[in-house]
Design a protein around this nucleic acid. Structure first.
Length: 323
DNA sequence: TGGATCTAGAAACTTACCTCA
DNA sequence: GCTGAGGTAAGTTTCTAGATC
Protein backbone atom coordinates (compact mmCIF):
# COMPACT_ATOMS: atom_id res chain seq x y z
CA UNK A 1 0.00 0.00 0.00
CA UNK A 2 1.21 3.41 -0.68
CA UNK A 3 -0.20 6.45 0.97
CA UNK A 4 0.99 9.63 -0.56
CA UNK A 5 1.21 12.66 1.62
CA UNK A 6 1.94 15.90 -0.10
CA UNK A 7 3.03 18.78 2.04
CA UNK A 8 4.23 22.11 0.83
CA UNK A 9 2.91 25.20 -0.80
CA UNK A 10 1.98 25.48 -4.37
CA UNK A 11 5.10 27.40 -5.27
CA UNK A 12 7.44 24.82 -3.95
CA UNK A 13 5.56 21.60 -3.91
CA UNK A 14 7.25 18.91 -1.99
CA UNK A 15 5.76 15.56 -1.56
CA UNK A 16 6.60 12.73 0.67
CA UNK A 17 5.24 9.34 0.35
CA UNK A 18 4.11 7.31 3.24
CA UNK A 19 4.24 3.75 2.24
CA UNK A 20 2.50 0.86 3.81
CA UNK A 21 4.38 -1.86 2.13
CA UNK A 22 4.09 -5.55 2.77
CA UNK A 23 7.47 -7.11 3.12
CA UNK A 24 8.26 -9.89 0.74
CA UNK A 25 6.88 -13.12 1.95
CA UNK A 26 9.46 -15.07 3.76
CA UNK A 27 9.62 -18.07 5.97
CA UNK A 28 12.23 -19.78 7.97
CA UNK A 29 13.57 -21.29 4.81
CA UNK A 30 13.39 -18.15 2.83
CA UNK A 31 9.90 -18.23 1.48
CA UNK A 32 6.75 -17.64 3.30
CA UNK A 33 4.70 -15.40 5.41
CA UNK A 34 6.71 -12.84 7.18
CA UNK A 35 4.51 -9.84 7.21
CA UNK A 36 5.75 -6.39 7.82
CA UNK A 37 4.22 -2.99 7.66
CA UNK A 38 6.50 -0.16 6.87
CA UNK A 39 5.79 3.52 7.13
CA UNK A 40 8.35 5.61 5.43
CA UNK A 41 8.98 9.16 4.46
CA UNK A 42 12.15 8.97 2.48
CA UNK A 43 13.72 11.99 0.91
CA UNK A 44 17.12 11.36 -0.58
CA UNK A 45 20.17 13.09 -1.78
CA UNK A 46 19.83 11.95 -5.31
CA UNK A 47 18.77 14.60 -7.70
CA UNK A 48 17.53 12.63 -10.63
CA UNK A 49 13.86 13.24 -10.89
CA UNK A 50 11.67 10.33 -10.08
CA UNK A 51 14.59 8.05 -10.21
CA UNK A 52 14.89 4.96 -8.16
CA UNK A 53 17.86 3.74 -6.26
CA UNK A 54 18.65 0.68 -4.33
CA UNK A 55 19.76 0.41 -0.76
CA UNK A 56 22.76 -1.68 0.21
CA UNK A 57 20.34 -4.42 1.14
CA UNK A 58 18.68 -4.30 -2.20
CA UNK A 59 15.66 -2.30 -1.16
CA UNK A 60 14.24 0.05 -3.67
CA UNK A 61 14.32 3.63 -2.68
CA UNK A 62 12.67 6.28 -4.71
CA UNK A 63 14.24 9.62 -5.08
CA UNK A 64 12.22 12.50 -3.88
CA UNK A 65 13.06 15.95 -4.90
CA UNK A 66 11.39 19.21 -5.44
CA UNK A 67 10.31 20.45 -8.80
CA UNK A 68 13.54 22.36 -9.23
CA UNK A 69 15.52 19.25 -8.86
CA UNK A 70 16.84 20.21 -5.48
CA UNK A 71 17.62 17.27 -3.28
CA UNK A 72 15.45 16.88 -0.25
CA UNK A 73 16.50 16.02 3.19
CA UNK A 74 16.05 12.47 4.24
CA UNK A 75 13.50 11.92 6.91
CA UNK A 76 13.64 8.29 7.74
CA UNK A 77 10.39 7.47 9.34
CA UNK A 78 9.73 3.87 9.92
CA UNK A 79 6.85 2.12 11.47
CA UNK A 80 6.98 -1.53 11.08
CA UNK A 81 4.71 -4.26 12.14
CA UNK A 82 6.25 -7.58 11.62
CA UNK A 83 5.50 -11.09 12.63
CA UNK A 84 8.77 -12.87 13.08
CA UNK A 85 7.13 -16.08 14.12
CA UNK A 86 8.46 -18.94 12.13
CA UNK A 87 5.87 -20.62 10.09
CA UNK A 88 6.87 -23.62 8.15
CA UNK A 89 5.76 -23.36 4.62
CA UNK A 90 3.63 -25.88 2.97
CA UNK A 91 5.65 -28.80 1.93
CA UNK A 92 6.86 -28.76 -1.57
CA UNK A 93 7.93 -31.61 -3.65
CA UNK A 94 11.42 -30.37 -3.93
CA UNK A 95 12.30 -29.77 -0.36
CA UNK A 96 9.70 -31.32 1.82
CA UNK A 97 11.96 -33.28 4.06
CA UNK A 98 14.14 -30.35 4.96
CA UNK A 99 11.21 -28.08 5.53
CA UNK A 100 9.59 -30.61 7.75
CA UNK A 101 12.57 -30.61 10.02
CA UNK A 102 12.15 -26.99 10.87
CA UNK A 103 9.66 -25.27 13.03
CA UNK A 104 6.14 -26.36 13.57
CA UNK A 105 5.81 -30.07 13.96
CA UNK A 106 2.42 -31.19 12.89
CA UNK A 107 3.41 -34.74 13.42
CA UNK A 108 3.32 -34.39 17.11
CA UNK A 109 1.32 -37.31 18.31
CA UNK A 110 -0.16 -37.22 21.75
CA UNK A 111 1.60 -39.81 23.76
CA UNK A 112 -0.86 -42.12 25.30
CA UNK A 113 -0.45 -45.18 27.38
CA UNK A 114 0.27 -47.34 24.44
CA UNK A 115 2.96 -45.07 23.13
CA UNK A 116 5.71 -46.43 25.28
CA UNK A 117 5.35 -49.81 23.75
CA UNK A 118 5.15 -48.34 20.32
CA UNK A 119 8.23 -46.23 20.71
CA UNK A 120 10.38 -49.31 20.93
CA UNK A 121 9.28 -50.33 17.48
CA UNK A 122 11.70 -48.17 15.64
CA UNK A 123 11.37 -48.61 11.91
CA UNK A 124 15.10 -48.52 11.60
CA UNK A 125 15.27 -51.69 13.57
CA UNK A 126 12.87 -53.48 11.33
CA UNK A 127 13.90 -56.72 9.79
CA UNK A 128 12.77 -57.94 6.45
CA UNK A 129 10.64 -60.95 7.20
CA UNK A 130 8.74 -63.35 5.08
CA UNK A 131 6.01 -61.30 3.38
CA UNK A 132 3.30 -61.68 6.03
CA UNK A 133 1.10 -59.23 4.15
CA UNK A 134 0.39 -62.02 1.68
CA UNK A 135 -1.97 -63.37 4.29
CA UNK A 136 -3.90 -60.15 4.06
CA UNK A 137 -4.04 -60.48 0.31
CA UNK A 138 -5.26 -64.05 0.54
CA UNK A 139 -7.86 -63.10 3.10
CA UNK A 140 -9.06 -60.28 0.89
CA UNK A 141 -9.29 -62.63 -2.07
CA UNK A 142 -11.35 -65.11 -0.11
CA UNK A 143 -13.65 -62.32 1.05
CA UNK A 144 -14.08 -61.34 -2.58
CA UNK A 145 -15.13 -64.84 -3.41
CA UNK A 146 -17.60 -64.81 -0.56
CA UNK A 147 -19.10 -61.69 -2.04
CA UNK A 148 -19.61 -63.51 -5.29
CA UNK A 149 -16.77 -61.68 -6.97
CA UNK A 150 -18.56 -58.38 -6.62
CA UNK A 151 -16.03 -55.86 -5.38
CA UNK A 152 -17.36 -54.24 -2.23
CA UNK A 153 -14.99 -51.76 -0.74
CA UNK A 154 -14.18 -52.95 2.70
CA UNK A 155 -13.01 -50.28 5.04
CA UNK A 156 -9.76 -51.18 6.67
CA UNK A 157 -9.30 -49.98 10.17
CA UNK A 158 -5.72 -49.94 11.28
CA UNK A 159 -5.07 -51.12 14.76
CA UNK A 160 -3.70 -48.78 17.37
CA UNK A 161 -0.31 -50.37 17.15
CA UNK A 162 -0.25 -50.18 13.38
CA UNK A 163 -1.20 -46.54 13.41
CA UNK A 164 1.37 -45.68 16.05
CA UNK A 165 4.09 -47.51 14.18
CA UNK A 166 3.19 -45.74 10.95
CA UNK A 167 3.23 -42.42 12.78
CA UNK A 168 6.67 -43.15 14.12
CA UNK A 169 7.84 -44.10 10.67
CA UNK A 170 6.37 -40.93 9.27
CA UNK A 171 8.27 -38.89 11.80
CA UNK A 172 11.48 -40.43 10.59
CA UNK A 173 10.72 -39.97 6.91
CA UNK A 174 7.62 -38.59 5.31
CA UNK A 175 8.32 -40.46 2.10
CA UNK A 176 9.26 -44.06 1.68
CA UNK A 177 11.78 -45.98 -0.27
CA UNK A 178 10.74 -49.32 -1.65
CA UNK A 179 12.68 -51.09 1.05
CA UNK A 180 11.17 -49.03 3.81
CA UNK A 181 7.74 -49.61 2.41
CA UNK A 182 8.08 -53.35 2.30
CA UNK A 183 9.75 -53.43 5.69
CA UNK A 184 6.86 -51.58 7.26
CA UNK A 185 4.35 -53.69 5.39
CA UNK A 186 6.00 -56.83 6.66
CA UNK A 187 6.23 -55.53 10.16
CA UNK A 188 2.54 -54.60 10.26
CA UNK A 189 1.21 -57.42 8.10
CA UNK A 190 -0.14 -54.94 5.60
CA UNK A 191 0.27 -54.77 1.88
CA UNK A 192 2.92 -52.34 0.61
CA UNK A 193 0.17 -50.55 -1.25
CA UNK A 194 -1.65 -49.96 2.02
CA UNK A 195 1.46 -48.52 3.58
CA UNK A 196 1.95 -46.35 0.55
CA UNK A 197 -1.62 -45.10 0.70
CA UNK A 198 -1.32 -44.42 4.39
CA UNK A 199 1.74 -42.28 3.79
CA UNK A 200 0.03 -40.46 0.95
CA UNK A 201 -2.93 -39.65 3.10
CA UNK A 202 -0.71 -38.75 6.01
CA UNK A 203 1.17 -36.27 3.88
CA UNK A 204 -2.12 -34.83 2.71
CA UNK A 205 -3.32 -34.45 6.29
CA UNK A 206 -0.06 -32.82 7.26
CA UNK A 207 -0.35 -30.36 4.45
CA UNK A 208 -3.96 -29.61 5.25
CA UNK A 209 -3.13 -29.00 8.86
CA UNK A 210 -0.25 -26.77 7.92
CA UNK A 211 -2.46 -24.86 5.53
CA UNK A 212 -4.99 -24.28 8.27
CA UNK A 213 -2.24 -23.10 10.59
CA UNK A 214 -0.90 -20.74 7.96
CA UNK A 215 -4.37 -19.48 7.22
CA UNK A 216 -5.00 -18.68 10.87
CA UNK A 217 -1.68 -16.94 11.14
CA UNK A 218 -2.31 -14.86 8.05
CA UNK A 219 -5.77 -13.96 9.29
CA UNK A 220 -4.35 -12.68 12.54
CA UNK A 221 -1.65 -10.80 10.70
CA UNK A 222 -4.20 -9.25 8.42
CA UNK A 223 -6.29 -8.09 11.36
CA UNK A 224 -3.27 -6.57 13.01
CA UNK A 225 -2.22 -4.84 9.83
CA UNK A 226 -5.71 -3.49 9.31
CA UNK A 227 -5.75 -1.99 12.76
CA UNK A 228 -2.32 -0.52 12.25
CA UNK A 229 -3.35 0.86 8.91
CA UNK A 230 -6.36 2.56 10.45
CA UNK A 231 -4.22 3.99 13.20
CA UNK A 232 -1.76 5.39 10.69
CA UNK A 233 -4.53 6.88 8.61
CA UNK A 234 -5.92 8.58 11.67
CA UNK A 235 -2.46 9.86 12.44
CA UNK A 236 -2.06 11.25 8.96
CA UNK A 237 -5.45 12.90 9.18
CA UNK A 238 -4.43 14.53 12.41
CA UNK A 239 -1.27 15.76 10.79
CA UNK A 240 -3.21 17.18 7.91
CA UNK A 241 -5.36 19.07 10.31
CA UNK A 242 -2.37 20.33 12.22
CA UNK A 243 -0.49 21.85 9.28
CA UNK A 244 2.19 23.84 11.09
CA UNK A 245 4.24 26.53 9.38
CA UNK A 246 7.44 26.04 11.28
CA UNK A 247 10.45 24.29 9.86
CA UNK A 248 9.86 20.79 10.99
CA UNK A 249 12.89 18.83 10.18
CA UNK A 250 15.13 18.25 13.07
CA UNK A 251 17.07 15.58 11.40
CA UNK A 252 18.43 14.00 14.53
CA UNK A 253 14.92 13.25 15.64
CA UNK A 254 14.29 11.01 12.72
CA UNK A 255 16.78 8.35 13.42
CA UNK A 256 14.27 6.07 15.03
CA UNK A 257 13.18 3.18 12.97
CA UNK A 258 11.25 0.08 13.64
CA UNK A 259 11.19 -1.48 10.24
CA UNK A 260 13.28 -4.65 10.23
CA UNK A 261 13.77 -4.36 6.52
CA UNK A 262 15.65 -1.11 7.01
CA UNK A 263 18.08 -1.87 9.76
CA UNK A 264 18.16 -3.09 13.28
CA UNK A 265 19.34 0.07 14.88
CA UNK A 266 15.89 1.11 15.84
CA UNK A 267 14.42 0.20 19.11
CA UNK A 268 11.18 2.05 19.31
CA UNK A 269 8.81 3.72 17.01
CA UNK A 270 8.21 7.37 17.47
CA UNK A 271 6.05 9.43 15.27
CA UNK A 272 8.70 11.78 13.99
CA UNK A 273 6.28 14.24 12.57
CA UNK A 274 4.60 14.72 15.90
CA UNK A 275 7.86 14.77 17.79
CA UNK A 276 9.41 17.22 15.43
CA UNK A 277 6.35 19.36 15.32
CA UNK A 278 6.28 19.58 19.08
CA UNK A 279 9.94 20.40 19.14
CA UNK A 280 9.52 23.01 16.50
CA UNK A 281 6.64 24.57 18.31
CA UNK A 282 8.48 24.71 21.59
CA UNK A 283 11.65 26.08 20.08
CA UNK A 284 11.20 27.23 16.54
CA UNK A 285 14.27 27.28 14.41
CA UNK A 286 16.08 24.81 16.58
CA UNK A 287 18.01 22.05 14.96
CA UNK A 288 20.80 21.68 12.53
CA UNK A 289 19.08 19.80 9.82
CA UNK A 290 19.02 20.89 6.21
CA UNK A 291 15.36 21.44 6.80
CA UNK A 292 16.12 25.07 7.24
CA UNK A 293 16.83 25.11 3.55
CA UNK A 294 13.21 24.38 2.83
CA UNK A 295 11.13 26.33 5.23
CA UNK A 296 8.00 25.98 3.20
CA UNK A 297 8.02 22.29 3.24
CA UNK A 298 4.86 21.76 5.19
CA UNK A 299 3.14 24.93 4.33
CA UNK A 300 0.98 23.74 1.51
CA UNK A 301 -2.12 21.70 1.64
CA UNK A 302 -1.52 18.05 2.37
CA UNK A 303 -2.75 15.64 -0.19
CA UNK A 304 -3.39 11.96 -0.03
CA UNK A 305 -2.80 9.71 -2.92
CA UNK A 306 -4.25 6.29 -3.55
CA UNK A 307 -2.88 3.20 -2.01
CA UNK A 308 -0.95 1.05 -4.30
CA UNK A 309 0.50 -2.38 -4.05
CA UNK A 310 3.61 -1.88 -6.02
CA UNK A 311 5.92 -3.84 -3.83
CA UNK A 312 8.24 -3.61 -0.94
CA UNK A 313 9.55 -0.25 0.19
CA UNK A 314 9.09 1.26 -3.18
CA UNK A 315 8.47 4.88 -2.57
CA UNK A 316 7.68 6.35 -5.89
CA UNK A 317 6.92 9.96 -6.03
CA UNK A 318 3.67 10.73 -7.71
CA UNK A 319 3.61 13.25 -10.49
CA UNK A 320 3.45 16.77 -9.21
CA UNK A 321 -0.02 17.68 -8.23
CA UNK A 322 -1.34 21.12 -8.62
CA UNK A 323 -3.27 22.07 -5.59
C1' DT B 1 23.78 -32.90 -27.16
C1' DG B 2 18.91 -32.17 -27.40
C1' DG B 3 14.41 -34.08 -27.93
C1' DA B 4 10.92 -37.89 -27.59
C1' DT B 5 9.21 -41.54 -24.86
C1' DC B 6 8.53 -44.28 -20.83
C1' DT B 7 7.99 -45.01 -15.96
C1' DA B 8 7.56 -44.42 -11.06
C1' DG B 9 6.28 -41.61 -7.46
C1' DA B 10 3.88 -37.83 -5.46
C1' DA B 11 0.21 -34.48 -5.23
C1' DA B 12 -4.45 -33.38 -5.84
C1' DC B 13 -8.96 -34.66 -6.04
C1' DT B 14 -12.62 -37.85 -5.22
C1' DT B 15 -15.29 -41.74 -3.44
C1' DA B 16 -16.92 -44.76 -0.10
C1' DC B 17 -16.96 -46.79 4.38
C1' DC B 18 -17.14 -46.30 9.29
C1' DT B 19 -17.90 -44.08 13.77
C1' DC B 20 -20.15 -41.09 16.72
C1' DA B 21 -23.00 -37.57 18.60
C1' DG C 1 -33.16 -46.58 14.61
C1' DC C 2 -32.15 -42.55 11.68
C1' DT C 3 -29.18 -38.92 10.20
C1' DG C 4 -25.52 -35.83 9.24
C1' DA C 5 -20.74 -34.66 10.06
C1' DG C 6 -16.15 -35.90 10.34
C1' DG C 7 -12.28 -39.10 9.80
C1' DT C 8 -9.86 -41.97 6.83
C1' DA C 9 -8.63 -45.86 3.51
C1' DA C 10 -8.45 -46.27 -1.13
C1' DG C 11 -9.31 -45.07 -6.24
C1' DT C 12 -8.37 -41.88 -10.09
C1' DT C 13 -6.17 -38.21 -12.53
C1' DT C 14 -2.45 -35.12 -13.29
C1' DC C 15 2.14 -33.64 -12.94
C1' DT C 16 7.09 -34.15 -12.66
C1' DA C 17 11.71 -35.95 -12.51
C1' DG C 18 14.78 -39.34 -13.97
C1' DA C 19 16.19 -42.94 -17.21
C1' DT C 20 16.65 -44.61 -21.75
C1' DC C 21 16.88 -44.42 -26.65
Amino acid sequence: MELELSLGDSLAPVKHTITLAPAPARTCNGEGHDLALGLGVTPTEVSEKDSQRTSPRGEDIVVLEDDKGCPQVELPVGASLSCPMNVVSIQTRSANSEVCKQGFDVNAVPVDDGASTVRSLSPSSMQLAEVPWLHAVEQEASEDEENGGGRVRKKLRLSKEQSAFLEDSFKEHSTLTLEQKSNIANRLSLRPRQVEVWFQNRRARTKLKQTETDCEYLKRSCQTLTLENRRLQREVAELRAFRPTYPLYNHHLYGVRACPSCDNKATTYTNPLLVTTAAAVSSPGQGTSPASAMPTLFSSRPRFGPFTTTGHTVLRRQPSATS
